[in-house]
């Protein structure tokens, strides 16, 4: 717990976070039990999974889905649920 984290003298008081966008630094990927795996052959790039993902973990470039950000994906399965062509499978993590 205390390996390389700051002590009480070196952190902002009252739990204040002084840097915006810091949720990115909190890797929630290890919460996952099931991982979404996208079958790019079947995917129609409708982006419904991207807009529904609560962790912004579906990565898109040029309006095409490129990958799942497994550092932050918690494996909630919403993407698989909303996919209209059933191209996302939830696979058990090892």
């Amino acid at each position: 717990m205390s390996d390389n984290k700051n002590g009480w003298k070196d952190i902002p008081i009252g739990g204040m976070i002084k840097k915006a966008g810091n949720a990115f630094e909190y890797k929630t990927g290890d919460w996952r039990v099931y991982r979404p795996v996208i079958d790019r052959e079947k995917c129609i790039d409708c982006l419904l999974c991207w807009i529904h993902c609560p962790d912004s973990a579906i990565k898109v470039e040029d309006a095409k889905i490129v990958e799942v950000d497994y550092d932050h994906c918690k494996g909630c399965g919403i993407c698989a649920e909303v996919c209209p062509v059933n191209c996302i499978k939830m696979e058990k993590e090892n």
């Binding site: 717990m1 984290k5 700051n6 002590g7 009480w8 008081i13 009252g14 739990g15 976070i17 810091n22």
Partner: peptide, 15 residues
């Protein structure tokens, strides 16, 4: 600035 975020085993004690 963020006030009142989640603060678990890793920093609550320090606060």
């Amino acid at each position: 600035l963020t006030y009142g975020p989640l603060d678990l085993q890793d920093y609550y004690f320090e606060h």
